[in-house]
Write a protein that binds this DNA or RNA. Structure first.
Ligand code: SF4
Ligand code: SF4
Lengths: 144, 144
DNA sequence: GGAATAAAGGATAATTTTGTCCTTTTATTG
DNA sequence: CAATAAAAGGACAAAATTATCCTTTATTCC
């Protein structure tokens, strides 16, 4: 469904959202350990997300990644779009080309319905939404 | 959503289902051209599908790939499973590990619902289902 | 049986994705 | 200002996926 980079990206955003809720910053190493991802690869992904403004970052001592209040409202859809592009939201999952609304294949309507459901699920889910469960220790972002 | 191999596989199955409806056989070259896929790669994929019994094949002159009557009833789910495995049908699309039904994350229920819809769509769609549209020229398996 | 034909299979190459390492830039602290 | 800490970025490496080529095996036709 998503690339590895995208999975790490989603998990990292959720992790940072929870860890930085009092304006604290989270270091790369912390994030990588917290979500069980390779550190250097994680760095690349966070760089990209940072460039696109989905997460804030500060260099230097006591620096790191964080989110401001509006940052917590970033949706999973935005993260996915930033990393994997819009392939999942548009186009045919079956790779059947050259079809349009007027000449749909047998599964088009249902397929489109599903695609839209995925889209809307991701669009209505914010990275800050997982905080409570994470604090309760009910949700884990890595294997224990 | 699916790997390239899987997309080619699905298209090829649909193509063969339509081309071989009078017991005719379709050659590799024919399939590859018919669905616009690299020939040698297509060969590997068809070999795998053939080994798993999802498509029939005959060697030698006038040989090729074909489906018998029950073959037309093979579902897209079977094809996907044969090529990409069950990752799409099981497990978490978000790559969040260590969660179970008792400790679901905020999106689990809706996510699972979508996953099941994809599964059931693929399970209820047979490769022979596209024949009519293909014959009418309404559906294309490659860019024209 | 021999020639021709077409899939099966093995080996290898190109590309993309994933992952690592090292240097540079920017900020903080004393 | 100097030392240090941390992200940014460039170059490179490994692994997986996609793609190609060549040989072998099975089948048909003469
Ligand atoms: S009509 Fe069929 S092939 Fe075309 S985009 Fe819709 S589902 Fe895919
Ligand atoms: S509970 Fe959440 S993280 Fe776990 S499988 Fe369900 S959707 Fe994925």
């Amino acid at each position: 469904m998503f690339s590895k980079a995208c999975e790490y990206g989603i998990r990292a955003m959720i992790y940072i959202a929870q860890q930085s809720r009092q304006g604290e910053r989270v270091g790369l190493k912390d994030v990588a350990q917290g979500i069980d991802s390779p550190e250097a690869f994680m760095a690349k992904i966070l760089q990209a997300l940072s460039r696109q403004g989905l997460v804030q970052s500060v260099k230097g001592p006591n620096g790191g990644f964080y989110m401001d209040a509006p940052g917590l409202k970033v949706t999973l859809a935005e993260v996915v779009l930033a990393i994997d592009g819009d392939q999942l939201f548009t186009g045919c999952g079956l790779g059947l080309p050259e079809c349009n609304e007027k000449k749909p294949c047998p599964i088009h309507d249902e397929f489109k319905l599903i695609r839209n459901k995925i889209k809307s699920l991701l669009e209505t889910t914010q990275v800050g939404e997982f905080n409570e469960l994470l604090e309760k220790g009910v949700l884990h972002l890595k294997r224990v």
